[in-house]
């Protein structure tokens, strides 16, 4: 019986494996079968051929994707090494006049995008001293991109890479832990802060320190935390030049090693927010008037509006929200 089984297995191998191969070949699926393999990094472990044909059904891409997630997680929590996955994402609409030097001629419409983009790294470097004052120990241009909409407005996206000044916390279980992300709103829920252009740098500085402070608190509770992203959108008010509408949020990453940790976060209520408000009020000495902020109809969810419209606490519920994607 045992002999028969082994014989059958050998027969199965001899007959079916080439059959499957020939079938894939004949129906043209060969290309889709071989191309993902050919695209892999020859040095990566993932390039090892799948042991069983059954694995092919799962898709080689899934396999690679898992690995990429793994390395991204390791990079984010390694605070001594730069990574594109940890950044301040700063969006601004820019015009050619914003970047040209005094008396510099307009290069022509076709070159506007290029000029704005090429001068963005210098803009980032002017922001860096503020980034390294508390939040980070190093700051660099990670990426700059420009997109022009149908109205001809140029949206500049600057990604500022940084090395966090705070340690990531306990990352000993990183290989098995899952990365959890919490989104912290740095400007009010239903509307955005309005500030004068001169106050923008100070406002951004409060975003950095608030993100760092919230991350410290989270780290105290759950053991680890890294500021993964701080996203800042600045838009000039078209009816009121020189006045900017700003919205910002931070994405904090922490490592979840056991299933109960999630509940812990949900119960936690951030503290020390009032101190932050105070610092913002001091930092932005009345950038714009309070009346510009629309009134919230929901009394329970009414945010605390500060003079100058700096940063806001969304009252009620947790400040921590899971982000589906960023």
């Amino acid at each position: 019986m045992k002999f028969k089984l082994i014989g059958g297995l050998i027969f199965f191998g001899i007959v079916t494996v080439p059959m499957i191969g020939v079938n894939l070949y004949a129906i043209g699926a060969w290309e889709t079968f071989t191309r993902p393999l050919a695209g892999l990094d020859p040095n990566a472990e993932a390039n090892a051929p799948p042991e069983a044909l059954g694995k092919v059904g799962k898709g080689v891409f899934d396999f690679v994707h898992d690995r990429r997630e793994q390395s991204e997680k390791a990079a984010v929590f390694d605070v001594t090494t730069p990574t594109p996955h940890r950044a301040i994402v700063w969006n601004r609409y820019m015009e050619i006049e914003d970047v040209l030097a005094e008396g510099e001629p307009d290069p022509g419409k076709d070159l506007h995008e290029l000029y704005i983009l090429a001068r963005a790294p210098a803009l980032v470097m002017r922001e860096c001293p503020s980034v390294i004052s508390d939040l980070a120990t190093a700051c660099a241009v990670s990426k700059v991109e420009i997109d022009t909409d149908s109205k001809g407005r140029h949206e500049l996206t600057m990604r500022i890479g940084f090395l966090p000044a705070d340690p990531a916390g306990d990352i000993s279980g990183i290989s098995s832990a899952t990365e959890e992300r919490e989104s912290i709103r740095l400007t009010p829920r239903d509307y955005s802060a309005r500030v004068a252009e001169v106050d923008l740098p100070a406002l951004r500085a409060t975003f950095y320190s608030e993100a760092q402070r919230q991350c410290r608190e989270l780290r105290d509770r759950v053991g680890s935390c890294v500021v993964r992203y701080i996203t800042i959108d600045e838009q000039e008010d078209s009816t009121n030049p020189g006045s900017f509408t700003v919205s910002a949020y931070a994405t904090l990453s922490w490592l979840k090693t056991d299933a109960n940790a999630d509940a812990e976060v949900a119960q936690a209520e951030p503290t020390g927010v009032s101190g932050f408000f105070k610092s913002v009020t001091n930092a932005i000495g009345g950038g714009s008037d309070d009346s510009s902020a629309p009134a919230s109809t929901d009394a329970a969810a009414k945010p605390t509006v500060l003079k100058g419209g700096g940063a806001f606490r969304s009252a009620g519920g947790s400040n921590f929200k899971q982000v589906a994607n960023d």
Partner: peptide
């Protein structure tokens, strides 16, 4: 175009 990183 390619400025050096700034360290604290």
């Amino acid at each position: 175009l390619f400025p050096e990183p700034l360290y604290r």
